[in-house]
Amino acid sequence: MNIFRLLGDLSHLLAIIILLLKIWKTRSCAGISGKSQILFAIVYTTRYLDLFTTFISAYNTFMKIIFIATSLATVFLMYVKFKATYDHNHDTFRIEFLILPAFVLALLINHELSPVEVLWTFSIYLESVAILPQLFLVSKTGEAESITSHYLFALGSYRGLYLFNWIYRYYAEDHYDLIAIVAGLVQTVLYCDFFYLYITKVLKGKKLQLPA
């Protein structure tokens, strides 16, 4: 464990808490893409199957359970409890266009052609693009509430911090994993445009509004 990874994990946890609190306090999931949340739930359930086979640390097990549970809880809140507030008219991204290519790519490019390894690889590929329906929703409505922006910033920072973690591990532990690194790079790049708007607008107290 190094500081970049710890900060990355905490940032990820913060993003999830912000989102759940926003939905719970406002009793509404307006402006949030249910499609992205479904993708994240698929990402965590397929990646953390090793919970049943490998024990790494109490921290690792605890975080994995939290990520699976909170992603399922978010989907439940959006599609069941606060279904009436869900913005389904704008949330029209076709997630099969992300799921299927991620799965095919995982079958083609992986470290080992075994079920658990392919599912792990699939989850890494899918995570890198899972935010696209959310970014699509924001671009369709042309704006995002501040709280949604904070959520996106925390979520984007998480993989960005992991990039520094991988650079650190490359030098300190002589370890690297190209699948995770390339996917993490793609994931972080997808947030760049949003990061720019967040820093130039949201941090100055303005609402995130896209140019017409």
Binding site: T54, M63, F67, H111, W120, N165, E173, H175, D177, A180
Partner: peptide
């Protein structure tokens, strides 16, 4: 071994 090293990440 990649299995023990990378799988410790989240």
């Amino acid at each position: 071994n990649r299995y023990t090293i990378v799988k410790d990440e989240l």
